[in-house]
Design a protein around this nucleic acid. Sequence first.
DNA 1: ACGCTATTTATACACTTGCACAACAAGCTC
DNA 2: GAGCTTGTTGTGCAAGTGTATAAATAGCGT
Lengths: 225, 225
Amino acid sequence: MPDAADPAPMNTPSRRRFRREGEERRRQDLIEATLDSVAEHGLQGASLRAIALRAGVTAGLIRHYFPGKEELLQEAYAALMGRMTEQAKAALVMEDASPRQRLAAFVTANLNVPIIDTRVFSLWATFIGRASADPTLAHVHREGYLGFRNEVEAVVAEVLAAERRSPDASQLRHHAIAINAIIDGLWIEGCLAGEMFSPGELATIGIRTIEAELGLAPLAQLQEK
Amino acid sequence: MPDAADPAPMNTPSRRRFRREGEERRRQDLIEATLDSVAEHGLQGASLRAIALRAGVTAGLIRHYFPGKEELLQEAYAALMGRMTEQAKAALVMEDASPRQRLAAFVTANLNVPIIDTRVFSLWATFIGRASADPTLAHVHREGYLGFRNEVEAVVAEVLAAERRSPDASQLRHHAIAINAIIDGLWIEGCLAGEMFSPGELATIGIRTIEAELGLAPLAQLQEK
DNA sequence: ACGCTATTTATACACTTGCACAACAAGCTC
DNA sequence: GAGCTTGTTGTGCAAGTGTATAAATAGCGT
């Protein structure tokens, strides 16, 4: 049986065809391929060859864009964190909404797809497990965490102000820490055991718990039409 | 310069000295060495040779106690989870304590050393990052999580019963989910940024938030003498 | 004191890994 | 279209990986 896949068997240097992509495009593709590899097989499975295969290039090219594997992983983590916090904050920009509605929307957004997602959780856990040993990863995390918490603190301040309450800085900080913990904890439960919860259940629990934490009368039913 | 480190250079088969340990002892040592390796350098750094070096044996021995690396890692994770839930539950066995005191003690125990610990967190995150891809790890986690949540639910039921309140199963479940999330979330914050909180602060926040969630009057100050 | 056996070491092997470097060609500039 | 830059490929290498297996010895039963 002749080999139909190679019609010209003689003198085949047959180097692989390729296209030159813009630098930014290539870097993003490589970072995305890195995140996919890490999510599927962990840091162990994220070899340069596996990443390159996924990105549709050969392994050597990676060294042309990144000094080494470590830097690629760090940039990938930074990109992941950036996307996560960006999505979370996007839920806060609502015109013509009361602070309380914005807080509820924020919680709901954080406790549903696409933020509740096993792939993202897998990535988050894998990277953060190395944060205590890798100062660069630790720094990236710290930035994202503080940004998130400050965002929470700002909304909480608005909500309480709308209720004619004026908490001091310490109380505000405690509220933000607690609310952050509630969202994080429910997010983890949802990512790890999503099928144990009915749709929207986690968001409902989150809103109720946060309202209790802030001492707000639970008027959740009134908002439903 | 003569080699002072080898006083008998001729005929030195010089096989390494060793002691035979009991099976259980060796297995535990290997598991501990595995956890240490994973905590320090992640799953990538946990090579059989690194683990064996830490355990004071040679790499080949591992295959005498475990079918392969994967099984060793699974048993290590199971051992870790077992230890964590055991420590957590230990805080619940208190004689002559009101349900509410037991709940507070449970929260306090979970939000202080040794449960708040960067090494344990690093291990937890590393393993759980692989749980969505490895059914065995996922099962180990699920067991531990449900055990923990049921424990929480039981204490909550006692606390509410002592308050002459009789929640239905759904309310109880929601309380348990929320409280579990609060503890998990604060645990993560403490592990990742312990120096941002004063001693006992997380436990205080946790207790206050949980009491608000359960609708209990905050009599925390009264318990302080 | 002497085997016996199971624990332990040591070595070998096939394979993967990250990185270095030379060869090549895609596509812009003139 | 010729020439040049540089993005991209392919190959090579030393180090490290998990696993297999043979050789050695520690420590028990007798």
